[in-house]
Amino acid sequence: MAAEYSKCEDCMYYEYDEEYGVYACIMDLDEDETARFIGGTFSDCPYYRPGDEYTIVRRQM
Rank of each mutant, 00 (worst) to 15 (best):
residue 1 M to N: 15
residue 1 M to Q: 13
residue 2 A to P: 14
residue 3 A to D: 14
residue 3 A to N: 13
residue 4 E to W: 03
residue 4 E to S: 09
residue 6 S to K: 12
residue 6 S to M: 12
residue 7 K to N: 11
residue 8 C to Y: 05
residue 9 E to I: 02
residue 9 E to S: 02
residue 9 E to M: 10
residue 10 D to V: 02
residue 11 C to K: 00
residue 12 M to H: 07
residue 12 M to L: 15
residue 12 M to I: 10
residue 12 M to N: 07
residue 13 Y to G: 08
residue 14 Y to W: 13
residue 14 Y to E: 01
residue 15 E to R: 15
residue 15 E to C: 11
residue 16 Y to N: 11
residue 17 D to R: 09
residue 17 D to E: 12
residue 17 D to S: 12
residue 17 D to Y: 08
residue 18 E to A: 13
residue 18 E to M: 08
residue 19 E to S: 14
residue 19 E to P: 05
residue 19 E to T: 14
residue 20 Y to A: 14
residue 20 Y to K: 15
residue 20 Y to C: 06
residue 22 V to N: 12
residue 22 V to S: 08
residue 23 Y to H: 14
residue 23 Y to Q: 07
residue 24 A to I: 10
residue 24 A to Q: 12
residue 25 C to L: 00
residue 26 I to Q: 09
residue 27 M to D: 00
residue 29 L to T: 03
residue 29 L to S: 00
residue 30 D to P: 00
residue 31 E to S: 04
residue 31 E to A: 07
residue 32 D to N: 04
residue 32 D to S: 04
residue 33 E to C: 04
residue 33 E to S: 09
residue 34 T to I: 09
residue 34 T to N: 07
residue 34 T to E: 14
residue 35 A to S: 07
residue 35 A to L: 09
residue 36 R to A: 05
residue 36 R to D: 05
residue 36 R to T: 00
residue 37 F to D: 01
residue 37 F to L: 08
residue 37 F to T: 01
residue 37 F to R: 05
residue 38 I to W: 02
residue 39 G to K: 04
residue 39 G to P: 00
residue 39 G to R: 03
residue 40 G to L: 02
residue 40 G to N: 04
residue 40 G to E: 04
residue 41 T to V: 11
residue 41 T to N: 05
residue 41 T to E: 10
residue 42 F to C: 13
residue 42 F to T: 02
residue 43 S to C: 10
residue 43 S to V: 12
residue 44 D to S: 12
residue 45 C to Y: 02
residue 45 C to P: 01
residue 46 P to T: 06
residue 47 Y to C: 01
residue 48 Y to P: 00
residue 49 R to C: 06
residue 50 P to K: 07
residue 50 P to W: 14
residue 50 P to I: 05
residue 50 P to C: 05
residue 51 G to W: 00
residue 52 D to I: 03
residue 53 E to T: 07
residue 53 E to V: 06
residue 53 E to R: 09
residue 53 E to N: 08
residue 54 Y to N: 15
residue 55 T to H: 09
residue 55 T to W: 06
residue 57 V to C: 06
residue 57 V to Y: 11
residue 57 V to T: 11
residue 58 R to F: 12
residue 58 R to Y: 13
residue 58 R to V: 10
residue 59 R to S: 10
residue 60 Q to E: 15
residue 61 M to L: 14
residue 61 M to P: 08
residue 61 M to S: 13
